[in-house]
Design a protein around this nucleic acid. Structure first.
Lengths: 231, 231
DNA sequence: CGGACTTTTGAAGTAATTCAAGGGGAGTGG
DNA sequence: CCACTCCCCTTGAATTACTTCAAAAGTCCG
């Protein structure tokens, strides 16, 4: 009996990890595929939440936009992660916009399809609970950081998180494998690109990071962590 | 055939709403009860997450504490809401502390008990997904507010949210039915008690609110909303 | 009525934003 | 291959919103 090659991929994603074969087969059967080019919008803040996606390869960015056009980067999404959780949780509309960073391949489901799968296979529903719990937890920590820390610490925390999430060991240190402008870092840390630029310059002088255009390499992760802990 | 009186209460909570009778019965059978006095700790940040609670009557407050003792108020929890979601989502330890505001009655479950119920009754698992999705959504909005808004707007948003969540119509306006010190409002808005005090004084002069010791009444909700929208 | 907690308000200090201007890379098109 | 242009980044200087420091006045409860 042949197995569909998608099943192995699905089985390693955060939503389907550990699910029985029957569940993976049902999920696969109900799925469609989608491919997006860099800067293409996957789903738009305020639109009705009809679809759920799981990233196969590539990277997306989830943002929140204010009425006057300011942006906040909620998180980056990588392979195996869910985009468009609203279709899981039953919200009417997408709370934020998701946009492609790289050329990205996705599995997709309609809201009703994925809910059917969750209803039928409780392990997938439990995975959904786990994944949302983790994101909620992460947001609590960021809320605390934003409320209690000074800008320099927040930027340090942002970079520490990014290096764990998308870090690549190189000769010169841990390179963050996402193109990151100063503006992007500012939108993740709750500050301005100017302050980020100044901070990175200071760190570069101290040998903590080395960076270029849309690129950050952490040369001394230990020192960066100590910035995080300063009073 | 008699019905347990708890079933009606359970059926109106966010976790069990809309569940079939069999699910409610299983949940009720596995539950225990707990009662906490004001200021008593229900669960502690960093402790292993063994239990889940649902509030019957009363009110709790979920906080995050930093290493150096600063606090952030994540949210208030009222009747029907879940405390200790970590037992649902499978995290190892509680991300925050939950403490009683009023004398509070709770239903409780062990982690394994509530997970058994979710596995057996998918509608409850789906409710858990919905509830965590909503909280995640709320946190995204707060993150955006904290990143992009000035202090006065953030305090206004905090009070608007509280008045929706725990507002009581009175002759003088909408009274927030939670004892709220200036410090509490500061910990919800990401500022200091001094700034909150000054802001409330200014608003009182403009007839937007009237407040006393640990008490806030919104006299002009419309004006408060307009503060929220200022550039 | 005493004592602890909460709130208010002034004054000083400062971290970070805003304003402003210039410099550098990467890619494009001639 | 060179020049041009568009972003992106950097850095000073001025400004400001908010915090911190400090002290006093209320308010509640036993």
């Amino acid at each position: 009996m042949d197995q569909h090659p998608d099943l192995g991929i699905l089985g390693r994603t955060e939503l389907f990890r550990g699910a029985p074969m029957a569940a993976l087969q049902d999920a696969q059967a109900a799925s469609f595929r989608k491919r997006v080019a860099p800067d293409e919008i996957v789903l738009r803040q305020g639109d009705v939440a009809t679809n759920l996606y799981v990233i196969i390869v590539g990277r997306l960015r989830a943002i929140q936009t204010t009425a006057d056009g300011q942006q906040v980067i909620v998180r980056y999404l990588g392979p195996g992660e869910v985009a468009g959780y609203t279709a899981l949780s039953g919200g009417e509309r997408h709370p934020g916009t998701v946009i492609a960073v790289d050329d990205t391949h996705l599995f997709g489901w309609t809201e009703s399809a994925i809910k059917d799968v969750m209803r039928k296979h409780s392990s997938i529903a439990l995975n959904a609970v786990a994944l949302l719990g983790e994101r909620y937890h992460e947001m609590q920590i960021r809320l605390r950081e934003l409320s209690t820390e000074k800008v320099e610490q927040r930027i340090a925390h942002t970079i520490v998180r990014l290096s764990q999430q998308a870090g690549r060991r190189t000769a010169r240190g841990i390179e963050i494998a996402i193109p990151l402008s100063r503006q992007d870092l500012a939108e993740m840390s709750g500050t301005t690109l100017h302050t980020v630029s100044r901070t990175l310059s200071a760190w570069e002088e101290q040998g903590i990071v080395s960076c270029g255009r849309r690129r950050v390499v952490v040369s001394d992760p230990q020192k960066l962590l100590s910035v995080t802990e300063e009073v």
